[in-house]
Structures are given as structure tokens and as C-alpha cells.
Amino acid sequence: MNNSLSFESPSLSRRQFLNFLTGATVAATAGSALYVAGKFFLPPSESTGVGGAIVAKDILGNPIPATQITAEAPGTRALVAGLAGEPTYLIVKDDNTLDSMGIVDNCTHLGCTFPWNPVDQQFQCPCHGSLYAPDGTVVRGPAPLPLKIVHVAVIDDRILISPWTETDPRTGEKPWWV
């Protein structure tokens, strides 16, 4: 039996060890910088409910309680941020509840946003003069299609907005936006 120590060269030289440390430091620094850049450029994921429902939010991204909107007078159209941040009108019914159908505020002519005119009881696009009935159907062009609609539900004072994929109740046809 040989109990003597071996004088062979070590398996990792000093140069290899320093190269490994330098590479690990560069990789850790680059990885942390890429992580921060990725978090900055990727939007935060939004939790969705059944059927892709999201919570209605105000212009600052804060959830809007249903009681805040239902406290308004019947017939009021409240503008909130809906699916994909699209401005969406919610309608207060006569019994101070929200209508189950919301109307997306994008003109089907060129995508302009428009106000609700309570005096004339219609949506009026200021860009090219399209007029829409209270349910979003076209009264006067050049808009070729009715406004997009979404489902609206209230659960625990939260307003949930989800995509409308069924037959459009205004036309009786498959929705153009599906």
C-alpha cells in the first residue's frame, strides 16, 4: 500500500478557476439586467375569471366597485376600462343595477372613441359623424357595423367584464368581432 501524497497537478488550474469566476460574474450580472428589462417591457398578467372575465377598472387601473356606478341615476352610461383596456360603457338600469351588456367605445368606422349624448340619447362619433342607438346599433353611417358588446356581471361588488361570443341579440347573427 502506498500512503504517500501525489504531486500531480490539480484538476483545475488557477487560470481556469479565475476564468470560471469571471464568466459566472458576467453571467449573473447579464442575467439580472435581462430580468429587470424583461419585467419592464412585458405587461403584468391580469388574472381572468370564468370565460376570460376581468375586473372593470378606472383610468388609473384601480378596480371600480359596482356600488359606485349603480349610485348614479338610471340610464347613466359609465365609462370604464374593460377588456384589453378598451373603454367600455356600462349602463345603469331603472332598478339601479347594471345591464348585463356593456358597449365598447370604439367606432366601427375608424376606431375613434366617442361620447354618450344624454340629450339625444345616442352615441355620437365626432370624427366622421356616425351615430349609434343606445344599444350600439348604427343609426347613421359611415360606420358599417354595430358597436362591439361585452358581458357584464357583478359579483361581490366587483364588476366583471367578459367577451361576448354568442349570437348578437341586436342583429340575430354571429358577432363580427369574434
Rank of each mutant, 00 (worst) to 15 (best):
Y132R: 01
P87C: 10
V104W: 02
G52H: 07
T70Y: 02
D135T: 09
Y132A: 05
G111N: 07
I159D: 00
I59A: 15
R77H: 14
S47R: 09
S130R: 02
D168Y: 10
A133N: 07
V138Y: 01
D95I: 12
I59Y: 11
V139Y: 00
T70N: 07
T137Y: 03
P175D: 08
N62A: 12
G82A: 10
I149L: 05
T108V: 00
G51T: 06
V104N: 03
A78I: 04
L160F: 11
W176D: 11
D135H: 04
D94W: 05
K174P: 11
E173D: 10
S130D: 02
H151T: 13
P175G: 06
T165S: 13
L110M: 09
G52E: 04
L98C: 09
P175W: 00
D157N: 14
S100L: 15
P87G: 14
H128I: 13
I54V: 14
C112N: 04
D105N: 15
R170D: 07
M101R: 15
Q121K: 12
D156I: 05
I91H: 15
P134Y: 02
E72V: 03
S47D: 03
V138R: 01
F114C: 07
G51W: 02
C125F: 02
W116I: 12
G75V: 13
G38A: 06
L83G: 06
A53K: 00
P87Q: 14
L79S: 10
A84S: 15
T137D: 03
L110R: 12
T48H: 04
V150H: 02
L145D: 07
P44L: 10
L160Y: 11
N96A: 14
I159G: 00
I69W: 01
A84N: 15
D94H: 07
Y132C: 01
S45I: 06
I161Q: 08
D168I: 03
H128Q: 11
A53C: 01
Y89F: 13
R140W: 12
G38N: 08
W164H: 07
T97G: 10
K57S: 10
T88V: 14
G172Q: 12
